[in-house]
């Protein structure tokens, strides 16, 4: 999924002519990833100097018609209308980068993929017949070609700046796909799982957050989804041996990246325990 990284990018360097047009698109999501862009206070001026922000619902109302040089897509596809709209976005975009767990794996709303949606709707909404929704919440790359996927719930703003810098300079983004543990160890954080017996998804989770939770003495929640070829069964077995019940394992894997294949496959094995509770 995250493998298809680069198309040949022409050098833009200092001889940039017109500023590239950047668009931000929102699908089913909480807007948290878009806000990461606004959160880049120190870098925002440089971003604004480097690109023309042509469509960004969280920052401005101005909408400029495409085509766009770079589209950042947040959120998953959950409605028939969105399933159409994403194709329009793709057609209007030279490069399309998905940002966040919703866009890259379906998000926490993909929990419904394994349940009866109509039942939910009838419980939640007063007039369920107004609701038009798809049975599943799916990542963007199940619908259109994605040039780069930036993981996280939410994304890490420094990684977003890195992707933008890489785009503006026509280079490959330095975004590693290895385990979170490498970031943790580089930062000198002691392993919470080994030294405190805290269940931690770090060893199977994609790096990117800078080991945020272990720095605060917590186990990793897997916000960045599965790392490159993760060995989920082995970690789960270890959790079980540490005394964690099946339902805990099921729940740990069934959060923001529940629909990511490596997590989904393993959590389904522990799912029964989750249901029977």
């Amino acid at each position: 999924m995250a493998g298809k990284v680069e198309k040949p990018v022409p050098a833009q360097t200092s001889r940039r002519a017109a500023k590239p047009k950047l668009a931000v698109w929102k699908f089913a999501s909480c807007d948290g990833c878009q806000l990461s862009l606004l959160d880049c206070e120190d870098e925002l001026l440089s971003v604004a100097a480097g690109v023309e922000i042509a469509n960004f619902p969280e920052a401005s109302r101005a909408v400029i018609k495409g085509p766009y040089d770079l589209s950042l897509v947040e959120g998953s596809i959950t409605t028939p209308h969105d399933a159409e709209r994403i194709h329009q976005v793709r057609r209007a975009s030279r490069f399309l980068v998905t940002i966040g767990a919703c866009a890259t794996s379906g998000g926490v709303q993909a929990l419904r993929n394994f349940q009866d949606v109509n039942e939910f709707i009838s419980i939640v909404y007063a007039s369920p017949h107004h609701i038009s929704t798809l049975k599943k919440s799916t990542p963007i790359d199940e619908h259109v070609t994605v040039d780069f996927e930036l993981r996280g719930c939410p994304i890490n703003k420094m990684q977003l700046v890195e992707v933008l810098s890489a785009y503006l300079n026509g280079r490959k983004p330095n975004i590693a796909r290895h385990s979170m543990c490498i970031d943790c160890k580089r930062a000198g954080v002691s392993c919470v799982m080994v030294s405190q017996g805290t269940p931690c998804l770090g060893p199977i989770t994609h790096s990117g957050c800078g080991a945020l939770c272990p720095r605060y003495n917590r186990g990793c929640y897997g916000c960045f989804g599965p790392m490159e070829n993760p060995n989920v069964p082995s970690l789960c077995e270890r959790w079980a041996a540490m005394g964690h019940a099946d339902v805990e394992i099921y729940r740990a894997l069934s959060t923001f990246n529940v629909n990511a294949e490596a997590f989904r496959k393993e959590s389904s094995l522990y799912e029964k325990a989750g249901d029977s509770e």
């Binding site: 680069e6 040949p8 990018v9 022409p10 050098a11 026509g170 280079r171 490959k172």
Partner: peptide, 12 residues
């Protein structure tokens, strides 16, 4: 042989 980002730019 231009097969990656660096070599693609080098060509230009």
């Amino acid at each position: 042989r231009s097969v990656g980002t660096v070599t693609n730019v080098m060509r230009t």
